[in-house]
Nucleic acid binder design. Sequence first.
DNA 1: CGGCGGTTTGATGTGACTCAAAAAGAGTGG
DNA 2: CCACTCTTTTTGAGTCACATCAAACCGCCG
Lengths: 248, 248
Amino acid sequence: MFSHSIASLFLEKLEARRRFSDAARGAFLALPAHEEEVRADRTIVRQGERSTRSCLLREGFLSRSKDLRSGDRQIVAFHVPGDLVDLQSVLVMVADHTILAHVASTVVSMAHADLLDLADRFPEIGRAMWFSTLVDSAIFREWTLNVGRRDAMAGTAHLLLELHYRLRAAGRASDDTFEMPVTQSDLADALGLSAVHVNRSLQSLRGAKLIRTFRRTVEIEDMAGMIELAEFDPTYINPEGPRQLRAD
Amino acid sequence: MFSHSIASLFLEKLEARRRFSDAARGAFLALPAHEEEVRADRTIVRQGERSTRSCLLREGFLSRSKDLRSGDRQIVAFHVPGDLVDLQSVLVMVADHTILAHVASTVVSMAHADLLDLADRFPEIGRAMWFSTLVDSAIFREWTLNVGRRDAMAGTAHLLLELHYRLRAAGRASDDTFEMPVTQSDLADALGLSAVHVNRSLQSLRGAKLIRTFRRTVEIEDMAGMIELAEFDPTYINPEGPRQLRAD
DNA sequence: CGGCGGTTTGATGTGACTCAAAAAGAGTGG
DNA sequence: CCACTCTTTTTGAGTCACATCAAACCGCCG
């Protein structure tokens, strides 16, 4: 179909920091991209499999997770619309984690080989992809802190704030409300807690008048209080700092 | 002609996967690199500061960590000789974590600006740097799992195995013995545990005849048992799949 | 020889887990 | 619109892994 306009979604995302040269854009748009619908609770990439394509999440909500023999699972990242999901594995032989769709999602994918070839021909594109994976890295580090050193309530608050921040950046949330597209048990797997305890942490947050919840939508009632409790500093999501640095 | 420059250490590391073209090598070696000795327990980069240089650890042992107001600390990575330590922050304005030398170390540094310029001119160099940060990423993910879902004994075992594996790859350890250049309290900060509990986990490992320790050297007495307990799979450290994993 | 970081031990406390079941939604079909 | 089931959230009770506190011990070094 319109692989032309589909690749442009990818392109747009990579150009978030700086617009590419016309040559680079042209080459990018000439590549084949493939759009796919994924149903809720379906696995996109399975741990241990060889993956050959990278994808951009157009709509929906994904997680990446690692499994233990015991059946325990650690979610290491969530992905919101607009995220380049799998650039982490371009240079890697075998996926070291599973990617799962939590709601019906649509995903645009391109071949690793094509992307790498492009990076070779246009350093500006290579740099944009590199940058994108560095942001992921920063999020991984923050999660390690969350899981290792914050207590349940602060960790939960931090995760909610991150989700809110990123969903809002993706145009999927208002200033204080967002739809949380995962179950409490998923949150538990992201926080290294049990589902029961996540439930109780959420209750504590409600009790402290920090958030309100109706079904799966979360309202951040006291943003300052949440930020304080979680020691949330979104710099790690936007590592260049505010957008003013566009020296063209 | 190349081998005498300090930059050549950097270069060697980046070329681990594939040798660069002569042009790229020449350009690389023409850049200024700076060697520096760091004393034990000195901070190299402080969280919140702007960092303008990246470094390669020539000798010694470093950690990267994030701090909480409470004083709690989470170590998110260790670095062994040969590691490119700070490529993570080339594209970033402000360091989101602290880098600390645990023993006297020597570090070779180059300016971010120079490295980025090089990446622009030689995509093969850009790719090598990208790749290096992707390996770091994989380690971050594994640590999140370690901290979030493994119990104290398995987590400790996993960390010891990772250190051993990487130190051996760096030529700093024998097949079953290595020098652990950090205190138990540092291990605790890496594992999200208390120092006391790390001590007890080490005792459990000794009691189970899995390891032996004399001072700070660790001997892995039962490698198979350790790997089994920790569910250790070093693929994440060598994501291309070293010799053995080359399926078909 | 005394001081100092690091390790080890013991005692006690608690945050988070497990198990189990009730309550509340969400989806399905009659 | 109700009856049925399945999933998710919520509650309660009991337990455990790991934390905290405090002191003793040890090796190292000046």
